[in-house]
């Protein structure tokens, strides 16, 4: 840890070599491997809730990566939005239908080859794109690039249109959620206490 912290402050421009990585770069790579591993486990595990938890590990690892790139604001936004609300939504979604303890053999829809192909293709596209875009450029991490003040000033002066478009996107998302959840029972109040309406069959114990 101390090597990492020491390295963070002493990124000399002279140290630009792939053969002598700094402590920060090593940690960056290690966390990247962890994120990849967690993501793979997340899509291959047969236990639904565990898959969501591995997703938490992967997204949290990404937050650490942002932090190592000194983008503090983005890192904690990642924790707040992805860990704190998106995965909670996923968990609620799982429990909405079913979140059985243990393996769910019927969770596999048989689309594995197609999913693998799509995943591999998008990964290849991203890797090609990123490698091509930043091939040999060196990003100096010592500037105040990741601070909130700078992020705010850039966002609200250079990126006004995307920002306003985002609000429309949020509106659309909410309307979609309402339409999905209220498809049939228009106007009628949900029956109170309908937590256990599916009680027709009971498990063998």
């Amino acid at each position: 840890m101390s090597t990492l912290l020491a390295a963070a402050g002493s990124l000399e421009p002279a140290a630009r070599s792939y053969l002598s990585p700094t402590g920060q770069e090593i940690v960056f790579l290690l966390v990247g491997v962890l994120v990849l591993g967690a993501a793979v486990v997340s899509v291959t595990t047969r236990q639904l809730v565990h898959a969501a938890l591995w997703l938490v590990v992967a997204l949290g690892g990404l937050a650490v990566e942002f932090l190592l790139l000194t983008a503090e604001f983005v890192a904690w936004v990642q924790v707040l939005v992805y860990l704190g609300s998106v995965v909670v939504l996923v968990l609620f979604g799982l429990m909405l239908t079913r979140a059985p303890i243990g393996r769910s053999p019927d969770a596999d829809s048989g689309n594995r080859p197609a999913a693998l192909a799509v995943g591999a293709a998008s990964a290849a596209t991203l890797v090609t794109l990123v490698v091509d875009a930043f091939r040999s450029s060196w990003i100096d991490l010592s500037g105040p690039a990741g601070t909130t003040r700078l992020t705010g000033e850039f966002l609200f002066s250079h990126w006004v249109l995307p920002f306003e478009a985002l609000s429309v996107l949020l509106l659309a998302a909410l309307v979609g959620a309402i339409v999905l959840s209220r498809a049939k029972g228009d106007g009628t109040k949900p029956r109170p206490g309908n937590l256990r309406t599916v009680l027709t069959k009971t498990k063998e114990r």
Partner: peptide, 28 residues
């Protein structure tokens, strides 16, 4: 006995979480 599939929850909770995401992004 637990019902098959572990029982169900009101869709309200899902909607609350969705609304939470939207406001969370607004806060961010």
């Amino acid at each position: 006995p637990q019902p098959v599939g572990g029982g169900r929850f009101p869709i309200k909770y899902y909607l609350t979480a969705m609304l939470f995401i939207v406001f969370d992004i607004e806060i961010v």
